[in-house]
Nucleic acid binder design. Sequence first.
DNA 1: GTCTATATCGGGATAGAC
DNA 2: GTCTATCCCGATATAGAC
Lengths: 221, 221
Amino acid sequence: MAGNGAGDTGGSATTAPVRRRRRDGELRREAILDAGLEVFSTLGLHGASIDQISERAGLSKTNLLYYFPSKEDLYVAVLRRVLDVWLDPLQTLSAGSEPADALRRYIRRKVTLSRDAPQASRLFCLEIVQGAPLLRAELAGPLRDRVEAKAAVLRGWIAAGRIGAHDPHQLIFAIWAITQHYADFAAQVEAITGRNLQDPAFFEATVEGTQKLILASVGLA
Amino acid sequence: MAGNGAGDTGGSATTAPVRRRRRDGELRREAILDAGLEVFSTLGLHGASIDQISERAGLSKTNLLYYFPSKEDLYVAVLRRVLDVWLDPLQTLSAGSEPADALRRYIRRKVTLSRDAPQASRLFCLEIVQGAPLLRAELAGPLRDRVEAKAAVLRGWIAAGRIGAHDPHQLIFAIWAITQHYADFAAQVEAITGRNLQDPAFFEATVEGTQKLILASVGLA
DNA sequence: GTCTATATCGGGATAGAC
DNA sequence: GTCTATCCCGATATAGAC
């Protein structure tokens, strides 16, 4: 983060460290994206200022604008990065697995994500709640396709009598809603219970409780 | 909305219509609060402008500021109004009821609210996700107390063996999360399923699916 | 209560030196 | 790539007439 080289005061530059410079630039971009996630996820696109983000990332406002031409550009870049993390865990629900195991693993994975990447979850939530102006395409395309694939897996399990009948979309939404609730509504959960997912016992209880709830709904517990 | 009286051009005013004027003022305030809910719930506090809100409410920017001294003041007023609607449905879970009936009614009520007052749900969501800076006190006080009361009801039912054992807080959070999901994440639900709660069949399927899921988790189905 | 200016300011974005 | 200085616009809020 800090401690960049003094920036060779000498003249005959462009010798060897060219390659390292490029990597520094990448790191800088990463730092900005990290800072953007933090600030955007608590203040929203309009509530956040470039100043805040640049300060947190350890550079100047103008310098940030060298890496990202506008605030909106940065915001979209942050969102895209979040979306990848977001779409990934669904893979856990694969047709080859034992239904109960697969569901249990998926739920644990989602709650773990709520614990370890709550800001990503919140930023995503903010965007969707506001109508997903910048994400509609991604939602209707890639996300929809992946969900349909997993819904098909669930339908297969139902048809084979391996789990009880339940609308696959509803089931997926329920898992999302419950697991993400502990990240997105953490302020409320904390106000009511006084605890959060950082507390290992609370984390484990949340995982197991959610697993039990979902499995029961498909007759596996 | 439109068509206010011409505004007595005469001089000897303040005769009879004084009382009606006060009621007009109240209506005006209501209209502003309504407009504020609409705009704030999609743009957020910082994304919304007084111009947009005043236009939607059918008056001028300056005029709006006559009724609410600042944007923040209006925002808080809107939020307070939402909170009341929000806290109300919990009453449905009363100790005297049959557990299955009470849970079913509560769930239907919540989904109905997601259908009829999605903007209120979204504004509340935005606020909580951002850490509830203006609501922390209300959450830790009134909301917490009401939730504790209802958690006690659930514990009573469990102790009496009328429903299966499940952490009361988890159960309440699950119901909130699932039912509000259809309002807060409507954009996502629509992108994936192509439907929303305005569709009567989808509404009914959502109510019944959620009832089934929750009841199953406490061994009542 | 409602309107027409207008003061004021934060903050996004650009120019250009280094 | 990074800095200083600056432009500029949108938006909140106020002043004061009607």
